[in-house]
Write a protein that binds this DNA or RNA. Structure first.
Lengths: 132, 132, 132, 132
DNA sequence: GTGGTCTAGACCACT
DNA sequence: GTGGTCTAGACCACT
């Protein structure tokens, strides 16, 4: 399944769903024209209230990533992949920007900042090599 | 002034104050034994409710970064600098971890992730050179 | 073809079919006594579920614009043209009423409202001249 | 009160609230920096569930017309008046466009369309003269 | 006091 | 079956 929920996280559940689906679409798990799991279906899968899933779908529709075919379900738009990737990149850029800015303003040296980043990246890329 | 507040940010104001003071202490702006601005003073400076400043001071006290001398004011502890730097590093590490994890799970290539990080870092270090 | 469907529109598809056929009848594309495309035929043409077309035909029948000759098909009634034109006019009147009311209550000046209307009308009448 | 709800209307209640507040801001009833009625307050006034009001406020925030000061309430942004007016004009333009397009495609003559529009406008401007 | 999130459940429209 | 709206009510965080 492409969406993982951490009920304990500070990030609201509906936001976790948005991120999870957007990442999945950016990664090509769902492609243009494909139908997404229905609101009720996904709600059961991730054990969350349907209203919460609906709220996530609403946001993705506003972003032009999915669209409704009334009475049928939610579908991935053709431009979804591009939009989703742009969005993820933008969010990542701003997260990195903020983290770097804070670290430097707290007096951390640039080399130290890069070192920590390298560890983060190495850890994750090693993990994906394990899977492969 | 060492604490900057963005009233429109999604980060709660008390958390922004905590971060700002902690960064300032990590960077050596305030040193062990020094007195911090009083609650009312800081509240006026950054135009915020005194209760909000108090809440931030309480949190920093719990973390052992500042302590109260009743009737005198809030003071920086001796271990404050170390603690603050460890805390900033930890927060940074987890922010980078999250960002990297999401980017990769959205199918972004590791080289691209590093590229974006480099831009963030370059931008900030250039800026600080300009100031110097 | 006289009926155009926008699957992404907020207007329900069956309503779009009703409007499209009614407009066509009002404009004289279909005349009293003429046969309309069968449910299946139209459904294939505009790529829509036959149930949806049927629903539209039912509504037009209720309005006395078309009638069924069992085993033969759907036919345009003699009063259809009059009824359809009255209906379009009524819908238009109420759409204009609503738009004007909102614009004025939002403080827009009457001259400005007329100006925007004139542009709408000019654009469409120029277009129809181009086609002619 | 600036927001009127028609429970029987086909327009969802939350959309009626959005329109009502936006029109009020466009008309200068609420000005930049002013606080809006709280969610609970407005909910009581217009006898609607607080969640429904919240949903409307959320949309207006997304549009940059209002912003939250956490723990305090919702406030009108400085650019709100301009944005709201642009939005109302855009909605009006598209409503008129649609109505005109349908009328013409149903074979109505341009003079007739203008006649109906003039009646709509005259009726409303007479009404506002009565109030004055 | 303020807004934000979430659940449970009803009811409706559309295909 | 599908999504969309609304209510009631709980619980939480922030100022």
């Amino acid at each position: 399944m492409s969406v993982q929920i951490s009920p304990g996280s500070h990030t609201p559940i509906y936001q976790q769903i948005i991120n999870g689906l957007r990442d999945a679409i950016a990664a090509g798990v769902y492609r243009g024209g494909e139908m997404l799991p229905s609101i009720r279906e996904l709600a059961v899968q991730i054990r969350v209230n349907p209203n919460t899933v609906q709220r996530a779908y609403e946001a993705l529709e506003r972003d032009g990533i999915i669209y409704v075919r009334r009475g049928l379900g939610m579908f991935v738009t053709n431009k979804a992949s591009r939009t989703a990737r742009a969005c993820v990149e933008e969010q990542m850029r701003s997260a990195l920007d903020d983290a770097v800015a804070r670290a430097l303003s707290a007096g951390m040296r640039a080399e130290k900042v890069r070192e920590i980043f390298d560890e983060s990246l190495a850890k994750r890329t090693d993990l994906s090599e394990l899977k492969a």
